[in-house]
Design a protein around this nucleic acid. Structure first.
Lengths: 207, 207
DNA sequence: ACCCTTCTTGACAACTCAGTACAGAACCAT
DNA sequence: ATGGTTCTGTACTGAGTTGTCAAGAAGGGT
């Protein structure tokens, strides 16, 4: 028996995420968020507890989205696991889109993983942001490791290789592409890096 | 026939770099730079043209330092090139120190490549910073590619591999470690990533 | 010893920012 | 319809920001 909120929190957090990804945390003012979301300052503070609260909730939403995008792309039967890994790599080096089935972003720097950008910018002085960012990393890394195990079971990757180590390495390459992309390199270059990484995956010995 | 400046510009830019690496560009105020360097605002504006000028000149100094650190570590005769590459990888994943022969930094996030941090934070809206950052990347990448060629000449790396592609990939891993380090992972984990990447380098076929 | 040039310092004005408070609007239940 | 509760928008405050300016200090050449 009260007035319902007239906005969709997910939509607001989405717009805020876009703003943070474009301008960084310290480069975004509350007025910027207000303009990007259409909400007034009062509503922002009441619903999300200000700028920092918006960031935390936007990152939580980002984390949740990772379970639907990358994880679903990697999960599946053992046969085809290597191909799924390949397809994922080729897509991931071009950035993390704001929504599924949307081209990542106009410029590559804004397409960089939201969690990675925030961790690098303010993670050192904001443990909560650092932890949230690492959660985002872990959930994808775990999915990659599981996909590697599936490929191993299918005989496509050397069974002696440590799947967790490989997953760390592949994810490090993907995050590194966020940086290389921020340098202004072309998408083709990032594709080439992804292909190089994939080509070096340890194949089982022929006998 | 005039008063000489009482500070060492290199020392000032060094202190400013430390501040930028710790707090980011937008997270650093002119007062912060003033406190970190000991210079008053007036001197900062007269000598470096304000905050943005300090950044550009600090990045130029950083670029110059890359020619003395990583490049010298990688250059040398063909025999031992692979070992140099190995040693460089193991060191590079732990960050770029402020000065040669100094432990990279107390916390890993502040040890991340200065150019990479700035490119990710403001490179998209600041072409000059993006270009400078990419120059830093290119000089190291070129040195790595040359070292790969030396290792190929020495028969330690598959001669069919494209040394430039390998250099891109290795540098991407190193930059990716800046991100993984910002997530809070231990130095041991970064070492492990470096070793995994090194182990996957294509060796020449035994015959 | 003097003077001129440059550096240095601190203060200043204009502006932006984060966060708060208050008044008005909207909605649901009765 | 009406009332009570919550949401919405805006104005406000105090702190922090940038860039500039002028007055004083310091050194080198004559």
């Amino acid at each position: 028996m009260a007035r319902p909120r007239s906005f969709d929190p997910d939509h607001v957090l989405h717009a805020a995420e876009r703003q943070f990804r474009t301008s960084g945390y310290n480069g975004t003012s509350v007025d910027d968020i207000s303009a990007a979301t259409g909400l007034g300052r009062g509503s922002l503070y009441a619903a999300f507890d200000g700028k920092h609260g918006v960031l935390l909730q936007a990152m939580a939403g980002y984390f949740a989205r990772l379970g639907q995008g990358p994880r679903n792309m990697l999960a599946g039967p053992d046969e085809g696991a290597l191909e799924r890994l390949h397809a994922y790599l080729l897509r991931a080096v071009h950035g993390v889109p704001l929504a599924a089935d949307v081209p990542p972003a106009p410029d590559r720097a804004a397409a960089a993983c939201f969690a990675a950008k925030m961790a690098l910018e303010i993670g050192a002085s904001d443990p909560e942001v650092q932890r949230l960012a690492n959660d985002c990393f872990s959930v994808v890394r775990t999915a990659v490791a599981e996909c590697v195990r599936a490929a191993q079971r299918n005989g496509d990757i050397d069974p002696d290789a440590d799947p967790d180590d490989l997953a760390y390495l592949l994810l490090t390459v993907i995050r590194g592409c966020d940086v290389v992309g921020a340098y202004g390199h072309s998408p083709d270059r990032l594709t080439s890096i992804a292909e190089s990484a994939f080509a070096l995956l340890p194949r089982p010995r022929h006998h």
